[in-house]
């Protein structure tokens, strides 16, 4: 693999300057934010590089345990932000992300898909947790929006004798569907429209394309499954918070 020198890396400033210049040219007002995000991104990535180097030097179970725990907490905090107003949003996010990670990791190890090594488990878990975090956040947001927008339909369903679960079915279905559709679409076009990040990374790192696609298949299908489970857990648990015990819709 070719090493990118520090000098070469510095030329990336030119790439940053393009959107910054466009921002000033068209008065978009995002110039400062683009510079700040780029600097922050670079610093974060360098730090993570050192952290990962440190983690990979630790015994596998310690490195994996420590970093997966950090990722789970950060992802849960982020997802819970979208669930503002929903009780226990953080705990819900954390539990569903833990469940997903344990489920996926167990299958990977059990079926000998990847070895239990920090170098393999940490980046792949990161992808699972990251995508599940987005799905969790979107599921929270979707539930809130749907309960707001479909208030009339829910009241109609309740007035016809439906209980909270029956009245929420349409919203639960929509939420799970919304979480799954982007993944279904991306699986359909995978490799045709763009080479996925993991596959690209492996090829750049010197792996053969055939080897790279094997990893990509594992991660893409695992993400698809995790995202679906996440949306299902969040919608099946959170709908209850929109009703009281007397099957009345809360404001």
């Amino acid at each position: 693999m070719t090493n990118i020198s520090n000098l070469s890396l510095l030329t990336m400033i030119l790439f940053v300057m393009i959107p910054v210049s466009l921002s000033y040219l068209f008065s978009l007002g995002i110039g400062k934010s683009a510079i700040w995000s780029s600097i922050r991104g670079v610093v974060q990535l360098f730090l993570i590089g050192y952290v990962l180097t440190f983690l990979f030097s630790m015994p596998d179970w310690q490195g994996v345990g420590l970093w997966v725990a950090v990722m789970l907490v950060i992802a849960s905090l982020q997802a819970a932000k979208r669930g503002k107003g929903i009780p226990y949003a953080f705990l819900l996010s954390l539990s569903s992300l833990i469940l997903i990670e344990v489920f996926v990791l167990s299958l990977w190890i059990l079926f000998n898909i990847i070895p239990f090594q920090s170098e393999q488990v940490i980046p792949m878990s990161g992808m699972i947790i990251g995508n599940s975090m987005v799905a969790t956040g979107l599921a929270f947001e979707r539930m809130k929006n749907e309960f707001h927008d479909s208030k009339g339909k829910i009241l109609a369903a309740l007035s016809l004798g439906a209980n909270a679960s029956q009245a929420s079915q349409m919203i639960i279905r929509k939420t799970i569907r919304a979480a799954m559709i982007p993944n279904v679409d991306s699986l359909k076009t995978i490799g045709l429209v763009q080479l996925p990040g993991m596959m690209t990374g492996l090829i750049l790192g010197g792996a053969s394309p055939i080897e790279a696609i094997r990893y990509q298949i594992v991660i893409s299908i695992s993400i698809f499954s995790s995202v679906s489970i996440c949306a299902m857990i969040i919608s099946l648990v959170t709908y209850r918070f929109f009703f009281n015990r007397k099957m009345q819709l809360l404001e």
Binding site: G152, K153, L155, A156, A157, L158, S159, L160, G161, A162, N163, M170, K246, M247
Partner: peptide
């Protein structure tokens, strides 16, 4: 509650039909 709501049915100002 479900039995009561079935016996005292309600029709809203807007139809609110399900998809």
């Amino acid at each position: 509650i479900s039995e009561l709501r079935r016996n005292i049915g309600m029709v809203f100002q807007q139809a609110h039909l399900f998809d």
